[in-house]
């Protein structure tokens, strides 16, 4: 019952705010799953290459973190970006908390929550993100969806609310190769494209996960492609 009240409150907030405010940054990133494994520690590297008519933006991030109890994990990231001028440098720091809200498979669908705080390097600009992580199995396939509310503030940035929506529908063909279709929605952006995820286990508790996707913007005629790649080493 507590969960239902929490869900209603948060969904109500999303309904109230989401139609007017969509994220204006690079929406293509990663679709989060609502699960946390106790004892899990991970090192993560992510890359997003965003190509438009005006140039290419490359963003990379490295992160280190792990679960600190049965249902919560904390991860810290350092983010670097290359701008249109070809300059690559440190751009932001980020702290991310994931919370598994229900036991996997207990309810009709699985639930989690995400809380993320980001500070831009050398700028008085902050971003707080929160939202739901949702997953439902359909036989050998899984549908994962994320809905986020984002608030940006600081002296060097305009204070504003944004929202983001991400989805991934994957076929669990083999652990090493699970093809997927991904959708990303933000302000003036609706992107769709293929992706895949996989996993290789080296030894008990040592495994490498990989994810990749190629997302094409479909709501506008201008060129707007994003390639994303993520590697996670769990130990």
């Amino acid at each position: 019952m507590k969960l239902t009240v929490l869900q209603l409150a948060c969904v109500g907030s999303l309904l109230a705010i989401s139609p007017a405010v969509k994220a204006d940054g690079i929406v293509v990133d990663k679709v989060y799953h609502p699960y946390v494994m106790p004892f899990e520690r991970e090192f993560e590297w992510r890359l997003v290459s965003h190509q438009t008519d005006s140039g290419n933006i490359l963003a990379q991030r490295v992160g280190l973190g792990g679960a600190f109890n049965d249902t919560m994990s904390l991860e810290g990231y350092v983010v670097g970006e290359r701008d249109d001028n070809g300059d690559f440098g440190l751009s932001a720091y980020e702290l991310e908390l994931r919370w598994q809200l229900v036991e996997q498979g207990r309810l009709w669908a699985d639930w989690g929550a995400l809380f993320e705080l980001e500070k831009q390097h050398d700028q008085d600009a902050y971003e707080f993100t929160t939202g739901f992580l949702w997953e439902k199995e359909f036989g050998k396939t899984s549908l994962t969806m994320n809905a986020f509310l984002v608030y940006e503030w600081g002296a060097d940035i305009e204070n504003e609310w944004e929202s983001e929506y991400r989805a991934q529908y994957r076929y669990r063909y083999r652990s090493e190769f699970q093809p997927a279709l991904e959708v990303y929605v933000g302000e003036d952006f609706v992107g769709v494209g293929p992706g895949f995820i996989g996993l290789h286990r080296f030894s008990p508790q040592r495994q490498l996960k990989w994810e990749a996707g190629f997302i094409t913007e479909i709501s506008q005629s201008e060129k707007n492609h994003s390639f994303r790649l993520a590697l996670e080493f769990e130990f």
């Binding site: 999303l14 989401s18 949702w134 929202s163 929506y165």
Partner: peptide, 23 residues
């Protein structure tokens, strides 16, 4: 389109607390 997608997501989310009997 994005608004419709989000609304579909929110409806599905509201259905999620349904429990299912398990043997």
């Amino acid at each position: 389109m994005s608004k419709h997608l989000l609304n579909v997501y929110l409806v599905i989310v509201l259905l999620s607390p349904l429990t299912v009997h398990a043997q």
